[in-house]
């Protein structure tokens, strides 16, 4: 058995945990239904199942893409990713203040801590509400955070049209 190489299809189970802060060790994402149930991130709008992706082509977070390369099927590895390798750095340009009436016209009053979505599909959190404006932070929740991923490589296939079941 050799390790996963760029261009191959990797099938993995993943569990992401926060690396820093008071919540260090808390699961925020997993493909494993048991972990999801245990850690309270389960919900029924989603199927928990292994993730399948082509290695080395930027389909997943860079740190995961990199870590899988060199792993062998059956192997489990835990990696800690800095923000650029994970969800990116926090960007102050993604904190935007809208005139209050723009927002209220669409959906009624909003309050700090609410999740809002712009019409182009971006979601963000209301961080400040004043008489005139509403400030929304469109940064990814985990932008600027260090995260830890436990990666279990289940299988590697030569190509998508190889011997994998269809």
């Amino acid at each position: 058995m050799k390790g996963a190489e760029p261009g191959q299809i990797a099938i993995v189970h993943l569990t992401g945990r926060l690396a820093d802060g008071p919540e260090a060790g808390e699961v925020f994402e997993t493909t494993d239904v048991d972990v999801a149930l245990e850690s309270g991130v389960y919900h029924d709008h989603r199927d928990f199942k292994p993730l399948e992706f082509r290695v080395g082509e930027g389909h997943v977070l860079p740190g995961i893409d990199e870590a899988v390369q060199g792993m062998e099927p059956g192997e489990t590895r835990t990696v800690t990713l800095d923000p650029p390798e994970a969800y990116g750095p926090a960007d102050e340009d993604s904190v935007v203040t809208f005139p209050r009436d723009h927002l209220d016209a669409g959906s009624g009053p909003v309050a700090v801590g609410e999740l809002v979505r712009s019409d182009r599909g971006d979601t963000g959190w209301v961080t400040d509400v004043s008489d005139t404006g509403v400030t929304v932070d469109f940064n990814h929740e985990l932008a600027g955070e260090r995260v830890e991923f436990e990666i279990r490589l289940l299988e590697v296939h030569a190509t998508e049209t190889g011997q994998e079941p269809t």
Binding site: G16, F28, R46, G58, H59, P62, I64, R120, F149
Partner: peptide
Amino acid sequence: AGIGVLAGCGQDTGTP
């Protein structure tokens, strides 16, 4: 859909 480690999936599509 799917999971939050896909490139471009965990993040919004652009700056509002």
